[in-house]
């Protein structure tokens, strides 16, 4: 029986977020909070592996109290248990401090039930870094397998996993000892429709919530803003380019003008 933990994050939907042009800050109220899309694939894959090999899927998140909603979404997708670490001490964490706090929570979860596999999304859409997953793997001292696009085999008895890792121009097949950590690409699966019983379970579900004090052997200097080596020194609106020349006239005239412009690059069309 496998114990798989998916690490997930609730994020603002950056596609529709509005910026305050005066302060260059995000108007968080303008964007709904969603389960990070890559993480949905991580949970989906964990649930599929559970169905194939048997076991339990737990999900773990760090975030403010409303992030419970993201855990409920994972229960809908088929996760069995949800854990959340939530504390002001975690606030302002960069990727290093985030992987530290999540690792402490994973160690606590593993005390109840040893973990065979950790799965993370490739990256979050608000941070866009992809650094937290590999960071957790290093801290747990397990192999990180980033960019997994297919799980070929998991063999708990013999203690290995075989996956396909996406490369720029293809993929590689890698065998790793268990436990290990995957970060997954979106193409690894299609999200299934949540069955009704899961939705009912999710509606009632309350995750286990821990504060910093509930975690063990925590070095508080490594948490949150204090534990973050990187700081954002300034944010600014991206430089505005000068802008192009608009072609005028009827559609046909515009197209003709455009054609003469692109055909000036004769060397491309020989």
């Amino acid at each position: 029986m496998l114990h798989i933990v998916a690490c997930i994050k609730q994020v603002p939907d950056t596609k529709i977020i509005k910026m305050n042009p005066k302060t260059n800050t995000m108007d968080r109220a303008s964007a709904p909070a969603i389960l990070n899309p890559y993480d949905a694939h991580a949970v989906e894959e964990a649930v599929r592996l559970k169905k194939k090999y048997g076991g339990t899927v737990s999900v773990l998140t760090m975030g403010p109290p409303p992030a419970v909603k993201a855990i409920k979404k994972c229960i809908e997708l088929g996760a069995d248990e949800g854990y959340m670490i939530s504390d002001r001490a975690f606030a302002g964490a960069d990727t290093l401090a985030t992987s530290y706090a999540l690792t402490k929570a994973l160690e606590k979860i593993a005390k109840h039930q040893p973990i065979d596999l950790v799965i993370c999304g490739k990256m979050t859409i608000d941070g866009d870094t992809g650094q937290v997953g590999p960071g957790i793997a290093r801290r747990l001292n397990i192999p990180p397998l980033t960019g997994v696009k297919k799980v070929v085999e998991i063999n708990k008895e013999k203690g290995y996993a075989i996956v396909q890792r996406k490369l720029e121009d293809g993929y590689e097949v890698v065998k790793s000892t268990l436990p290990c950590l995957f970060t997954v690409e979106k193409e690894i699966n299609d999200i299934s429709f949540a069955p009704l019983p899961n939705m009912i379970k999710a509606a009632r579900y309350q995750p286990t919530i821990w504060t910093a004090d509930d975690l063990e052997n925590v070095d508080r200097k490594q948490l949150g803003l204090k534990g973050s080596p990187t700081i954002v020194s300034k944010v600014w609106a991206p430089p505005k380019p000068e802008g192009g020349q608009l072609l005028e006239g009827t559609a046909q005239e515009q197209v003709n003008k455009l054609l003469s412009i692109i055909f000036e690059k004769k060397e491309l069309f020989q």
Partner: peptide
């Protein structure tokens, strides 16, 4: 670019 490219951010590592 940060937050889906809505802004640019300068990141420092001072310590």
């Amino acid at each position: 670019p940060a937050f889906g490219g809505n802004i640019m951010a300068t990141i420092l590592c001072k310590k």
